[in-house]
Design a protein around this nucleic acid. Structure first.
Lengths: 168, 168
DNA sequence: TACAATTAGTGTAGTCATACATATATAAAC
DNA sequence: GTTTATATATGTATGACTACACTAATTGTA
């Protein structure tokens, strides 16, 4: 089979996909571990569902209990109870809106915002500590490709990741 | 400042670290979402702590209830109860060892092994679907660097990631 | 052999997440 | 204005995770 033929290209193509997939599978375990640790260490008294709620509020802004329930894919009453606990911990604020007095607006309290920031910062530090160990040449090469990866993920709507991206 | 001076190199160096860290932080969210989905979809009736136990048994092999508790960083009695539920679901086997009749050996049952395999396969497919969207050139470039990343993670023992790598 | 240490399991208790059914208040529609 | 729909909260119930205190069985040791 001559070099540069279609068959060779396709084969090389799928080989590069498989190889990169395996690399990402491996890197994925590391990054999940880093993410888990950032929450466990910086948000000691907060459960994973609770952190998810804080993260949703941080990234999508204040919203009603109902839309929070949709974001988290839980029953509205579950969101109410979740907010009960977060209010008790002074991590979120519950405030009835004047324009529609049925709806209740939930927003991050100062402590909640700080907590999410701390978790993100902790994670950034952990990742930076790992990145420092990567040789310079390899480091420079990977940046664009990783951006391409994150961008490509958005282009696969059928994966239905939207329900999971607000996880950590 | 002349090109190639130490100051420039150091600056370029830390800039590349910061940039890559941000890229990884972004990619991290995607990969965590993929990981979460792989469990939610392929392991419907299994909680996260339960999946963690299965994953530990899958990667480190059969072990006693006590060492499982250490691996999961939970109280021994918690591990016992966890095993109760996993045995009820026919995902693990509990078997008293003949050489030391105090210890109980826990191992993956066929269903448990299949479940972990399914989750991994599902995750691989999701990642592959994303990787396919990445332009060919970027794809080839990133492989070595990602391997370097995973390898570098092992070289930062003070991160203490070992307690978290057995998460998903 | 008697005593101490180890290992797993049980009793008990607390918190959390979760959902269903229902109640209450409010807004919208007729 | 009465009825219907909506948004949240409450009552109730279940199951999971967790740990502490304690028991039972077994192993090791003085």
């Amino acid at each position: 089979m001559p070099r540069g033929s279609d068959a060779t290209d396709i084969s090389a193509n799928s080989r590069s996909i498989d190889t990169l997939t395996e690399s990402l599978l491996l890197a994925s375990r590391v990054l999940v571990a880093v993410a888990a640790r950032s929450i466990a260490e910086s948000a000691d008294d907060v459960t994973l569902p609770q952190y998810r709620a804080l993260f949703v509020l941080s990234s999508r802004g204040p919203q009603t209990v109902g839309s929070l329930a949709v974001s988290l894919s839980v029953h509205p009453s579950t969101a109410t109870r979740l907010c009960d606990r977060l209010v008790a911990k002074r991590l979120v604020l519950r405030k009835s809106t004047p324009d529609n007095r049925r709806e209740v607006c939930v927003s991050l309290a100062a402590r909640g915002k700080r907590l999410v920031d701390d978790v993100t910062e902790r994670r950034r530090e952990d990742i930076a500590a790992i990145v420092q160990r990567i040789p310079n040449e390899a480091r420079v090469k990977v940046v664009d490709a990783l951006r391409a990866f994150a961008a490509a993920a958005d282009e696969v709507p059928e994966l239905g990741l939207s329900g999971f991206t607000s996880l950590v």
